[in-house]
Amino acid sequence: MGLLIAFRDALGLFFATWRWTFRGSLFRQRKVFLRQLHDIGNRSVLFITVTLGVLGVISVFQVLLQVERILPEFSVVGPAFIQTMVREFAPTITGLMIATRVGSGIAAELGSMVVTEQVDALRLCNADPVDYLVAPRFWACVLHTVLLTVYGGVVGVCCGAVVAHEVWEIPWTSFFSLRLVELSDAASGLMKATAYGMAIPIAAAQAGLETTGGSEGVGIATTRAVVNASFAVVVLDFLLSGLSFLLWFQGR
């Protein structure tokens, strides 16, 4: 029952965010939006670089280690890895990383504003907290989740290519071949990134705005935000992978 109520509230916040967006929230709150773009995007670059880079290195290393035992031929490893990266790894790992780093940040910030009565002050000034606080963070997160997914995918593939070339002497051109990647793979990856980019700030903002009590409440809200946002990423991954399969991947 609690989960259903939380889902209903999250859906309400999601639609309220779109409503305020159509009423020009981003234009009015452009300063907050630009600051959020910096906070969510620029400060996540190193985090995503390291995570996706290490993932690329380890994945390619492990795959080549297994393939070496079965086949003497490595030419399909690079294209298959790129396809998996585009479809799955880049959006989902980036999404999970943003859910932890950005989700916790949004919940802590909004939670602190609730306990210091800033949200009450906004309401009394006839400023809707969704307009002022949620919408700018929502769109900054959507934009940067997509951009960081593309960036993280490139980093992961490049790091994997270095391992493939340096350890197994696979030619660069063979590894970087895009022969298995189709437009539908990119569409699937971008669809997931966009969905995660929307779900993460909503889950985090909801947790933050429902904060009660003092600093202990902020801590609880932050934990709840990370759990809910990560859970949302995993559930969306499952649902969107199924949808992609039905739409594009069947028979490939």
């Binding site: 907050v32 504003m113 210091t116 002050a121 009394l124 006839n126």
Partner: peptide, 20 residues
Amino acid sequence: RARLWERFGFLFQNYALFDF
């Protein structure tokens, strides 16, 4: 409620200044 709040001024115990 919004119209009513236009008639209010409120000094909060914790200042409630917008830190942004």
